[in-house]
Design a protein around this nucleic acid. Structure first.
Length: 854
RNA sequence: GGCCGCGUGGUGGAAUCGGUAGACACAGCAGACUUAAAAUCUGCUUCGCGGUAACGCGAGUGCCGGUUCGAGUCCGGCCGCGGCCACCA
C-alpha cells in the first residue's frame, strides 16, 4: 500500500510553486486585491507553535482568496531590532547584526518548510539600513509636522534593561520584558504626539466592524476619553491658582477639600519649607504602585495648611492636602474632593473629619434627611444644596456649572485623555538611530535627507553595560548640519514599536529607494484586508500603527486612516505540564506514557502531570515545530492546527491530535489514489443521469463546497475540517457500480482535494496529480457548487407533541402544510400521546418541525 | 472593585433566524483482517430505567425563575471560570 511521504512531496511542491512564481504579485488595478498579513515575527532563532498557528491561519485565507480570484498580497518580514540581540552580544560576543541575520536565515527556512503562499520577493527586515533609513525620513516628517517633539520629563526607567519604557510597556509597575520594578527618572526624550489623534483614534473604533469588540474596547479604555472641566481654585495668600480636572463640575458645591499628587510641583515647592511634608512625600514614593499595594493602601493625606477659595463662593475656604491617591500622570495632578459623590473622597473625608455634603439627590428620595453614610452616591439625580444648580438633573447641572465657570473665568469645559504621548527614545544600540544632531548653538537639528541613513556603527563593544552608542566617540562626533560647528548625534534609538508601525505599508513597495512609500502602491494595496496575530498586541502595536497611519495619511502617502480593515486574534497553544519528583519541570520529550497512561521518565522515575498551560520555556511544555514538521510534514501540522479548536480560542497540542491529523492525511491520500485508476478521464463530460447513490454522494459534495467556503470566510476552520471528514467518510463508503458512479466519484475526489488544498496544500497538489490532472492545483479557481444539488428534495421533519419529540417523518421539501399536518397526526406515536383527544393547535414550521399542542 | 467574555458527553467541540442537542474528531469498548503486533476496516459510545432485540419511557446544555406552541439560543437573578483594566477624579 502506497503512503504519502511528506518528506519527498512537500519540498517538491514548494519548489514547483516557487518555479511558477505562484505567489509573486504586482499591483494590478484591473483586478480586485486582497491583502493578508500576519504579525511579522521577531527573529529569535526558531519558530514556535504560535507562529505555526498564526501563519497557517493566514495561509488558508490567502490561498482561499487567491482561488477566489483576488490578487493576493501575502508578504513576510522580520521585526528585527530589539534587546535580545544585544543580550546575545553581551553573553556570547556575537555582533547583534550577525546574530539577527543568522536567526532570520534559520527561521526563513523553517517558515518555508510550512509551504506558505508568501511573496518572498517582498521580504524585509527592520534592522536593514534600506528599511530604517526610510523610518528616519518619516521620523523627520513627523517632526516637521509637529507630531514629534522633545521634552524633559519623568520617565519609566527599567534598571535591568537600562532603558526608558513607554507607559504601555509598564505592567503593574514593572518592565514588560525584565519584570524589574520601574524607577522614575527625569530625561530628555523624543515623543510622538499620539494625543493629537486621541479623538480620532477613539471615534474611529466605532466603525471598525472587522475588529473584535474586545480589542476595540481595550483601545477605547486605553485612550480613556473623559469629558469634564478644568477648574481653578485661588490659593489663599498667593497670586496663583490651583487647577484641577473633574468630570463632575456639577458637584462643586459639595467640595470639602482639594488635594495634590505627591509629585505635583506645588507639593515639591511647599515641601521645600516643610520637612514633615517632605517625609510624607517620601513615604508615598516608598509605597509601590503594584496591585496589592494599591489594594491595601489606605487613603492618606497631609494638610499643607494652605487654603483655596471656592470658585462659585469665594468666601468658602477649603483645605489643601497632599494625598497619596492622587495621580500626577492624569489630568492636572490635582483634584477637588466631593465626599458625598465619590468613594475615594468619602474614605478620605471620613478619615480626616471633613464635611460630607450631599448635592445630588437620588430619584424617589426626599431632600430632608438624605445623608451619605459609608457609600458615596455616584449615580445621576437632582441637584440640591447647590445654589443656582438646585433642581437641575446631573447632565444639565454639568453644563450649567461649566457655563458659569467660563463666565467667571474660573475654568472651562475640556476633554481629558488617559492616553499620553508616546516616548520613543531608547538608550540602546540595536535600534533605529534617531536622526538628530545636538548642536550647542542650534539645538536639536534634523539630519538632512541627503545624509540619511544615520547608520549604526559596526565597531561597538558590549563589554560594559549601557548604550555603546553614547560611548562611541567617532560616531557621535559630527558637524552641525546648520552651522557646521562641532556637535553630537543623538545617541538614542527608537522604540522598536516604531519599526512595526509602518512595515505593512512598506510591503506595498519594499524595494523603493527614493521614498519610504509609494502612493500608487498604497492606494492599490492598503488597507490590510485581514490582519492576524495575538491578542497581546491589542493596545501597543495596534494603537501605534493606527496613529502612524494617520501620520502617513497627513503626509500624502496614503488615503487610508486605518491600516487594518479586519483583525483576527488567534488563541494560544497550550500543552500539559510535567514535573519530576523533585518538582522540576520536564519537557514532553522527557516523559513517556505506558499502556495504562502512567507517566514516567525514560529512566523510570514517576512524573506528576500538571495543568494544561500556555506553551512556555519556563514550564518547559513546548513542542518544537521543526521536529513535528520533520516527522509528520507541514500538512499534518497545519491540519491539526485547524482541527477541533476554533482559531480564536486557546488550543491544546496533543500527541494524539497530531497522530489523528497524520492518519487523516494518509487516509485522504489512500482514498484518492486507490480510486484514481478506475475513474473516467479528467474533464470527461458528465453523464446524462445518475443512480440514487451517486446522487446522494453528489448532493453531499456540492453542499460541502458551499459549506467549506462559508466556513473559511468565517474563520470556522474547525467546521471546515469536520465537513471534509464527513465527505471523506462518504467517499470511503461509496462503491461505484457504473460509469456514472465513477464520474461522480471523480467529482467527489477532485472536490475533496480542492477544498482541502488551502489547509493541506502539498497533499492537494499530490492528489490533483494522482487524479490525472496537469498544472498546479494552486492555480485552479475555487470550485463552484451546483445549486440544484445543494437543496435536498426531501427533508426530515421533527414531530413533536407539546414540544416533546415523538417521531420523525421524511417528507417532500416544501410539501403543502395541510398534508404535513395530516401526515403528522397520522403517526402512531402522536396518536398514542394524544390519548384520543383532539389537538388544540398544530404549529407547522416548513421543512423543520410540527408541534402538536394537546 | 469595575467592565467584558464564557459555562454543552470522559475530552476538544458542532448546532446560520428561537425549531430534531451532542455533527466531526480524540479517548474508550467490541469485532474483522493478521501467526502476532502495527496499520487498516466495521460497529457501539449523554445519563437513568425497561427490553434478548429493534425499540420504548424519563432526565439532560452551571443553578433558580420567566417569556414562548417550542429555549443551549431570548429576559431576570444567582453560582463558577477566564480575560482586560485597576485610586484615571
Amino acid at each position: 500500500m502506497s503512503r504519502y511521504d511528506p518528506k519527498v512531496s512537500e519540498p517538491k511542491w514548494q519548489a514547483a510553486w516557487d518555479a511558477a512564481g505562484c505567489f509573486r504579485v504586482e499591483a494590478d488595478p484591473e483586478r480586485p486585491k486582497y491583502y493578508v498579513l500576519e504579525m511579522f515575527p521577531y527573529p529569535s532563532g526558531r519558530i514556535h507553535m504560535g507562529h505555526v498557528r498564526n501563519y497557517t491561519i493566514g495561509d488558508v485565507i490567502a490561498r482561499y482568496k487567491r482561488a477566489r480570484g483576488f490578487n493576493v498580497l501575502h508578504p513576510m518580514g522580520w521585526d528585527a531590532f530589539g534587546l535580545p540581540a544585544e543580550n546575545a552580544a553581551m553573553e556570547r560576543g556575537v555582533h547583534p547584526a550577525a546574530w539577527t541575520y543568522a536567526n532570520i536565515d534559520a527561521m526563513r527556512e523553517q517558515l518555508k518548510s510550512m509551504g506558505l503562499s508568501i511573496d518572498w520577493s517582498r521580504e524585509l527586515a527592520t534592522c536593514d539600513p534600506s528599511y530604517y533609513r526610510h523610518q528616519q525620513h518619516l521620523f523627520l516628517q513627523f517632526l516637521e509636522a509637529g507630531l514629534v517633539y522633545r521634552k524633559e520629563s519623568w520617565v519609566n526607567w527599567d534598571p535591568v534593561d537600562r532603558t526608558v519604557l513607554a507607559n504601555e510597556q509598564v505592567i503593574d509597575g514593572c518592565g514588560w520584558r525584565s519584570g524589574a520594578p520601574i524607577e522614575r527618572r527625569k530625561l530628555s526624550q523624543w515623543f510622538f504626539r499620539i494625543t493629537a489623534f486621541a479623538d480620532e483614534l477613539a471615534d474611529a473604533l466605532d466603525g471598525m466592524d472587522g475588529w473584535p469588540e474586545k480589542v476595540r474596547m481595550m483601545q477605547r479604555k486605553w485612550i480613556g476619553r473623559s469629558e469634564g472641566a478644568r477648574v481653578r481654585f485661588r490659593l489663599e495668600g498667593r497670586d496663583d491658582a490651583l487647577e484641577v480636572f473633574t468630570t463632575r463640575p456639577d458637584t462643586l458645591f459639595g467640595a470639602s477639600f482639594c488635594a495634590l499628587s505627591p509629585h505635583h510641583p506645588l507639593a515639591a515647592e511647599l515641601a521645600a519649607g516643610d520637612p514633615a511634608l517632605r517625609d510624607f512625600i517620601a513615604e508615598c514614593d516608598r509605597l509601590g504602585t503594584s496591585e496589592e499595594a494599591i489594594e491595601r493602601a489606605e487613603k492618606q493625606g497631609y494638610d499643607t495648611g494652605l487654603r483655596v477659595s471656592h470658585p462659585f463662593d469665594p468666601e468658602r475656604r477649603l483645605p489643601l492636602y497632599v494625598a497619596n491617591f492622587v495621580l500626577y500622570e492624569y489630568g492636572t495632578g490635582a483634584i477637588f474632593g466631593c465626599p458625598a459623590h465619590d468613594q475615594r473622597d468619602l474614605d478620605f473625608a471620613r478619615k480626616y473629619g471633613l464635611p460630607v455634603v450631599p448635592v445630588v439627590l437620588p430619584a424617589n428620595r426626599a431632600a430632608d434627611g438624605f445623608e451619605v453614610e459609608d457609600e458615596a452616591f455616584v449615580e445621576d439625580g437632582t441637584l440640591i444644596n447647590s445654589a443656582f444648580l438646585d433642581g437641575l438633573a446631573v447632565p444639565e447641572a454639568k453644563r450649567a456649572a461649566v457655563e458659569r465657570l467660563e463666565s467667571l473665568e474660573a475654568g472651562r469645559g475640556t476633554v481629558q485623555y488617559r492616553l499620553h504621548d508616546w516616548g520613543v527614545s531608547r538608550q540602546r544600540y540595536w535600534g533605529c538611530p534617531i536622526p538628530i544632531v545636538h548642536c550647542p548653538g542650534c539645538g536639536a537639528v534634523p539630519v538632512p535627507a541627503a545624509d540619511l541613513p544615520v547608520a549604526l556603527p559596526e565597531d561597538v563593544d558590549f563589554a560594559q553595560p549601557g548604550n555603546p552608542l553614547s560611548r562611541h566617540e567617532t560616531w557621535k562626533a559630527v558637524a552641525c548640519p546648520q552651522c557646521g560647528g562641532a556637535a553630537e548625534r543623538d545617541t538614542d534609538t527608537m522604540d522598536t514599536f516604531v519599526d512595526s508601525s509602518w512595515y505593512f505599508a512598506r510591503f506595498c513597495s519594499p524595494q523603493l529607494e527614493a521614498a519610504p512609500l509609494d502612493r500608487a502602491a498604497l492606494d492599490y494595496w492598503m488597507p490590510v484586508d485581514q490582519y492576524i496575530g495575538g491578542i497581546e498586541h491589542a493596545i501597543l502595536h495596534l494603537l501605534y500603527s493606527r496613529f502612524f497611519t494617520r501620520g502617513l495619511k497627513r503626509f500624502g502617502y496614503t488615503r487610508e486612516a486605518e491600516p487594518f480593515g479586519a483583525l483576527f486574534t488567534q488563541g494560544m497553544i497550550c500543552h500539559e505540564t510535567y514535573r519530576d519528583p523533585e518538582g522540576r519541570w520536564l519537557s514532553p520529550e522527557e516523559v513517556e506514557r505506558d499502556a495504562q497512561g502512567r507517566l514516567a521518565t525514560a529512566d523510570g522515575r514517576p512524573v506528576a502531570l500538571g495543568r494544561v498551560e500556555k506553551m512556555s520555556k519556563s514550564k518547559r511544555n513546548t513542542v518544537d515545530p521543526e521536529a513535528i514538521i520533520g516527522s509528520y510534514g507541514a500538512d499534518t501540522a497545519r491540519w491539526f492546527m485547524l482541527s477541533d479548536s476554533p482559531p480564536d480560542r486557546d488550543m491544546e497540542w496533543t500527541e494524539a491530535g497530531i497522530e489523528g491529523a497524520w492518519r487523516f492525511v494518509q487516509r485522504l491520500f489512500r482514498l484518492v489514489t486507490e480510486a484514481a485508476p478506475s475513474l473516467p478521464a479528467p474533464g470527461s463530460a458528465a453523464p446524462e443521469a445518475f443512480g440514487a447513490e451517486a446522487t446522494v454522494l453528489r448532493r453531499q459534495v456540492h453542499k460541502t463546497v458551499e459549506q467549506v467556503g462559508r466556513d473559511i470566510e468565517g474563520f470556522g476552520f474547525n467546521k471546515a475540517v469536520a465537513r471534509l471528514y464527513e465527505l471523506a467518510n462518504a467517499l470511503g463508503g461509496f462503491t461505484p457500480r457504473d460509469e456514472a458512479d465513477r464520474w461522480a466519484l471523480r467529482e467527489a475526489c477532485e472536490m475533496l482535494a480542492r477544498l482541502a488544498a488551502p489547509m493541506v496544500p502539498h497533499l492537494g497538489e499530490e492528489l490533483w496529480r494522482h487524479l490525472g490532472r496537469t498544472g498546479l492545483l494552486t492555480d485552479q479557481p475555487w470550485p463552484e457548487s451546483d445549486g440544484r444539488l445543494t437543496v435536498d428534495e426531501s427533508v426530515t421533519v421533527a414531530i413533536q407533541v407539546n414540544g416533546k419529540l415523538r417521531g420523525r417523518l421524511d417528507l417532500a421539501r416544501d410539501l403543502d402544510e395541510a398534508l404535513v399536518r395530516e401526515a403528522a397526526l397520522a403517526e402512531d406515536s402522536v396518536r398514542k400521546h394524544l390519548e384520543g383527544k383532539e389537538p388544540r393547535k398544530v404549529i407547522v414550521v416548513p421543512n423543520r418541525v410540527v408541534n402538536i399542542v394537546a
